[in-house]
Design a protein around this nucleic acid. Sequence first.
DNA 1: CACCCGATTATCT
DNA 2: GATAATCGGGTGT
Length: 194
Amino acid sequence: MKILRRSFFARDTDLVAQELLGKIIVREVDGHILKARIVETEAYLGINDPSSHAYGGMRVRNAPMYGQVGHAYVYFTYGMYYCLNFVSRNLKDPAGGVLIRAVEPLEGIEYMEQRRYKNTTHGLTNGPGKLTQALAITKELNTHDVTKKGVLFVIDAPEIAKKDIMISARIGISKAVDEPLRFYIKDNAWVSKK
DNA sequence: CACCCGATTATCT
DNA sequence: GATAATCGGGTGT
């Protein structure tokens, strides 16, 4: 089990978004170990990306995106959901982060099901707000260092072959709609729809 | 202080 | 396909 090093996150945000595919998120909560494989990501760049929270400069909420790479950036949205990002950028860039849009549950699945609404037919972890519910990720984990063993970190896994990585425009945004900054694993059942 | 709206999701038609 | 739920940040008065 090899934890991703900080240097992994200190590269161009879109490259990190791509290479995070297949890596495994480990979450320790409530005496349970949860593991899930990243199958869909999106890159959000710095002050010039109109869809990024970092757009226009540093403020209280987006400060983590300007902070140390390899930290989590967790934000609250729509009054009820959290979204998980890993701060990632070439250190020449002022800000950047990778949104985790979907994961494939590997371990602790029953616990994840408990955290999610019962009787849902809409999937356990195939959406950014859903996976944070399943993995019990809240604002308490904002700025958490995910390059060290602890309650949340990421471990290495074999690289996904280029031919199995699909690239598209980002989802759920209204600006810079055409940028090819969404990455997902081809034919994976856990990739979010839309 | 009022208003708008969002890196979403479940539910209803 | 459309919309309600629900609230904090950002903007303007």
